[in-house]
Computed example of a mutant assay.
Amino acid sequence: METRYATSPEELPLLDTAGLRRRFLLEDVFRPGEVTATYSHQDRVVIVGVQPGPEGLDLPTFPELRSEFFLQRREAGVVNVGASGTIVADGVTHELAHGGCLYLGRGTREVRFVSGDEGDARFYLFSAPAHADHPTTAVAPGEGNRRELGDQSTSNRRTLNQYIHENGVRSCQVVMGVTTLHDGSMWNTLPAHTHDRRMEAYLYFDLPEDARVVHLMGERQETRHLVMANEQAVISPSWSIHSGVGTRAYSFVWAMAGENQAFDDMDPADITDLH
């Protein structure tokens, strides 16, 4: 497990491109036949990538967690960004198609990820500490709370699916969903915003190999950017704006943890205010 420590806004202007990427970018989320994990001190979240074969991979615990099993004191949301696969949670099998989501409640002891016949499934897991038990629940692609946002004239027409949220699949603090840009649109999450009560992480996916997303971050008067490829993730501290523009349309998993679950609890940063 890799550890990423918290960063204050005062540190950001001192970092070069390599420093920004070391602190905030997860370049190698998925490795064939492996489980990768990154522990972030931003709200104590853990970001995991699992790329199993047909024989499957178990979700391990890690020495850094000091727990008997991974979800002993945690909950997690999982989105499959690869081919169809299954997750077996304490003996119950959940089929997860591309873009589908599974919530894993606190106390789930055994979790196994398996790829289906179509090829490699790639499971993206976002975990946070939990104070209560909620039932493990699956949501099929597109069956969350669907919101149509943006406009084609501003290149940000997008479909947002809320899966784990205060009025949907219940959790302690994880909020999670998938946003898909329409063809011809490139901007996500416009206007950019912050939410001081929650951190957020993005995983960009369904992005062609020859395309990139320019992800904006930092304080609104001191912005920086990261150039990101397909299936890379970025950690966004609560003080940082987060938005991005791609050279092609794409999807992204957004996941949050922190003080509340109110999706619209955000402070917008108009594009004309960004420096």
Rank of each mutant, 00 (worst) to 15 (best):
Y103R: 00
L104I: 09
C101E: 07
H94S: 08
T108Y: 01
V88F: 06
A76H: 01
Q162D: 06
H134G: 06
R73P: 12
V78A: 09
G150I: 02
N161Q: 07
G85S: 11
L104D: 00
S84C: 14
G144D: 07
D117K: 11
D151W: 11
F70P: 00
T154G: 05
F69L: 09
T108D: 00
G100W: 02
R73L: 15
T108L: 03
L102H: 00
T86A: 14
D117W: 12
F69P: 03
G85V: 11
S127H: 00
Y103H: 04
S153E: 13
D133G: 11
E118V: 12
G116N: 05
N145K: 12
P129I: 09
V139E: 09
L71W: 02
V81G: 07
G119W: 12
T159K: 05
V78N: 01
G142D: 11
V111D: 00
N145W: 13
G105S: 04
D151I: 02
A128L: 06
A132I: 13
A130V: 10
V79F: 08
R112M: 02
R73C: 15
V79H: 04
L96M: 10
T136A: 01
T108P: 00
T137N: 06
C101W: 01
Y124I: 11
T159R: 05
L160E: 04
G99R: 01
V81S: 10
V139G: 08
G77R: 03
D90S: 08
H98I: 07
G91L: 05
F69T: 08
R74W: 09
A121P: 04
E118Q: 12
G144W: 05
R73I: 15
G100A: 14
